[in-house]
Design a protein around this nucleic acid. Structure first.
Length: 296
DNA sequence: AAGAGGTACAACCGCCATATG
DNA sequence: TCATATGGCGGTTGTACCTCT
């Protein structure tokens, strides 16, 4: 599904152009190389520490939008990319909460019905489909659904059926068809590099370590705040292997540590009393191997 | 085996809305 | 209030990969 970044002609040319000389200051375009992804990730990692903390200190809720961190000083990261490009790369590819598996039959039906209801408001549709980007949905619609519907309409004079995925090759689709609800699809492949937060309550935090937990499964229909339970103490998050978006609590015995996987779920912190006591937390971004949920 | 055409997807473009100074 | 910068969105394009002949 996700085509690996490659050294396209465009990319190589751009890289060569950016390699030195007068072209050094030119903005790069084209596909992102793994090195650029790495730099963007590293930049977010390092800049995220101070920026995030300082924003928290100002009690600005918007700190939750990590995208802004990426945009702050991309030039300093050696990325001769526009802010827009960085944002797009982050939003459509690097964001850790993105689903990596192909769009399922069920999701396709959702797209069809929502498109019928909302029109081409892809961002609104994407907002109702956790883990999917507007770009992804838009591409999916344009490349598959619309063509099939128009073809079917042309052939039969009627709209194409909702099940338009006969070509979908994956076991995922088969699984969903066989047991739509009971199916427990394998965890989606998680990219090796995950920008994750680690927030540690300093000095025990005084309150014994408030945590917030949520157990949003990969295919949950919503990431609404209503699905979230916030609690005090160190009790939450023991089922970290199932925590798709958020693993809270002292899951690894390293103190009052909270691990966040999905940026959206940073919003949860707002609802936890005392959690935004900025002086109580030491936050950092770190790499993570999600298979263990605790890589450093 | 090789070339042509099709498909899927990443990324760019241009416009508009909002924020900031 | 105005000018500029930034962010968000939908439309479109470019191209790597796949399939067919």
């Amino acid at each position: 599904m996700v085509r690996k970044p490659m050294s396209s002609r465009n990319g190589e040319a751009a890289a060569a152009a950016g390699g030195g000389g007068a072209a050094e200051e030119k903005e790069r375009k084209g596909l992102w190389s793994p090195e650029e992804d790495e730099r963007l990730y590293t930049h977010i990692t390092h800049r995220g520490v101070s920026t995030w903390s300082s924003l928290i200190a100002r009690q600005v809720i918007w700190f939750l939008d990590l995208t802004r961190l990426a945009l702050h000083s991309f030039h300093c990261a050696g990325l001769r990319r526009s802010g827009k490009s960085c944002r797009l790369r982050w939003m459509n590819y690097l964001r850790p909460d993105l689903k990596k598996e192909p769009i399922s039959d069920r999701e396709a039906e959702t797209i069809i019905s929502l498109q019928k209801l909302l029109g081409n408001r892809w961002s609104v549709i994407a907002a109702k489909m956790p883990g999917r980007t507007d770009n992804e949905i838009k591409n999916y619609w344009n490349s598959r659904i619309r063509k099939r519907q128009s073809a079917a309409a042309g052939a039969k004079g009627e709209p194409a059926p909702a099940t338009v995925m006969e070509k979908e090759p994956t076991a995922n689709a088969a699984t969903v068809a066989a047991a739509p609800e009971a199916a427990s699809p394998p965890p989606p492949p998680i990219p090796a590099r995950l920008p994750m937060f680690s927030c540690q309550l300093l000095d025990g935090g005084g309150s014994g370590g408030a945590t917030a937990t949520t157990q949003s499964p990969p295919n949950a229909g919503s990431s609404d705040i209503s699905e979230v339970s916030a609690c005090g103490g160190n009790g939450g998050g023991e089922d970290s292997s199932r925590d798709y978006c958020f693993s809270g609590g002292d899951v690894d015995g390293d103190g009052d540590m909270v691990h966040l996987l999905a940026l959206d779920d940073l919003d949860l912190l707002v609802d936890v009393p005392g959690l935004l006591d900025v002086d109580a937390w030491d936050c950092e971004l770190y790499r993570a191997d999600y298979s263990t949920s605790r890589a450093r």
